[in-house]
């Protein structure tokens, strides 16, 4: 009987001693973790998209507490900045909610097809071949690189044209970096009107290449009460900071190159 009891007593005694030491050490040498990291992590959207430039939301939470700017998360929008500044006790100007918009409306039926493309169906590859089979070398080639890279299913490619579903877009800008044609632009989500054309050719040429091209006729420039529209490189561009969404430009555009888009139209 004794042979059993002695080892049990020894082990229990050791356990007791180590337990006391450990509990003493844990109180004495406690590492104070910043509870704000946890709090920041809780208000972040948790999309882990990396748009802030850090490795996911955990990385950004750590960075915010370490002093990084609190306006870097485009997904969370204005509400997030408010809650972050509350946690961090700092003021911060809210970053405006931005969405991606494909500045092209040239579906296959609006352009002429120059040649049959054979090979890898990838935007980058297609656009090295004479700028793609579409007659407009500036426009969307419709192979869906942006659709593939979008983690939020916010882009669909239909009839040779990518379209952003702006209500789903979080503004992570991954598609912007991916597009070999550079026709995806970030715009404030509140702006509803855009010249959805990227063609920089002269009016007549642009019109020949695509039925809905901006031909730089300046009618919208004259019509706009806010003087928000200007012609840059043979196409109209709406300055979203001046635009008040009146929609007069859409009415005068002869080629329907200006569209009402935005979250309301999805």
């Amino acid at each position: 009987m004794e042979t059993v009891l002695i080892p049990v007593a020894i082990v229990s005694g050791l356990g007791l001693i180590f337990g006391i030491i450990l509990s003493y050490v844990s109180v004495k040498y406690e590492v104070k973790a910043d509870e704000r990291i946890e709090a920041v992590r809780d208000v972040l959207p948790g999309a882990n998209c990396g748009a802030c430039g850090y490795s996911g939301c955990d990385g950004y939470a750590q960075a915010v507490v370490d002093g990084a700017s609190i306006t870097l998360c485009p997904v969370g929008g204005a509400g997030l900045v408010d809650s972050l500044s509350e946690i961090m006790g700092t003021g911060g100007k809210a970053s405006e909610k931005m969405v991606a918009r494909v500045m092209c409306n040239g579906t296959w039926d609006k352009v002429t097809i120059k040649f049959d493309y054979d090979g890898i169906l990838d935007c980058r590859s297609v656009s090295t071949m004479a700028g793609g089979p579409s007659s407009c070398v500036y426009g969307c080639v419709g192979m869906g690189c942006c659709e593939k890279v979008c983690a939020f299913d916010a882009i669909v490619v239909e009839n040779g044209l990518a379209k952003v579903i702006e209500s789903k877009c979080t503004g992570c800008e991954k598609c912007v970096a991916e597009c070999p044609k550079d026709i995806i632009k970030m715009v404030p989500a509140r702006s509803q009107y855009a010249v959805v054309c990227s063609n920089e050719e002269k009016g007549a040429v642009a019109r020949k290449n695509c039925k809905v091209a901006c031909i730089a006729c300046r009618r919208c420039v004259k019509e706009c009460p806010q003087q928000a529209i200007s012609i840059v490189n043979m196409r109209a561009i709406i300055d979203t900071s001046k635009c008040d969404n009146c929609g007069k430009c859409v009415e005068v555009c002869p080629t329907n190159a200006i569209l009402k888009c935005g979250i309301l139209c999805d």
């Binding site: 090979g119 890898i120 990838d122 980058r124 590859s125 090295t128």
Partner: peptide
């Protein structure tokens, strides 16, 4: 397989 074509995409990237 379209090897060179894909390698061109990669080189570009």
């Amino acid at each position: 397989r379209y090897l060179v074509q894909s390698i061109r995409i990669g080189k570009d990237a």
